[in-house]
Amino acid sequence: MNQELTEEEKDTLKHVAIKLETFEKHRGNLIPILQMVQNNLSYLPSEALKIVAQHLGILESEVYGVATFYNQFRFHPPGKYPIKVCLGTACHVRAGDIILENFERKLEIPEGQTTPDRKFSIERVACVGCCALAPVAIIDETVHGHMAPSKVEGLILRIKLQEEMEERENKQHEPGQS
């Protein structure tokens, strides 16, 4: 939670502070507010908890206590490509945990964390509702059904290649280069 905010995040935080004013100062709004903050910032940095507490006139520790209770709230920035591995019952029966393990091994991070370059993060989720496609992993917003351990490397590789291509293109378009 002690990570520095990026400039972009600081801007978003200002925007969040403005939006906050549209919420009535009512304790029952705490969870909807936290949801709004996370929708904007994609996680809850301590700076955000602070302004939420101020807005509602409650202690920061109280906000922290509530936020840490719920699965939805994250306190670390997710990766650019969040990977969610379904561990619902159907996926479990079809060895979803092996898929999760493979992602963890390939990206060298445990579930719940983000790679140091902030590109990937791994999360386990309960049923995403495509049990017939089990086991399932979701990268960004795309559902990958019938996963197999050997598909994991290919998926990550594909994203990395795509990134590289985009970067190269961006470089070419930058003025003063080439």
Partner: peptide, 15 residues
Amino acid sequence: TFAKRGFDTVISTYS
């Protein structure tokens, strides 16, 4: 306050 959940629940004085 109570923080976190389940087996990890702790009493916290966060920040």
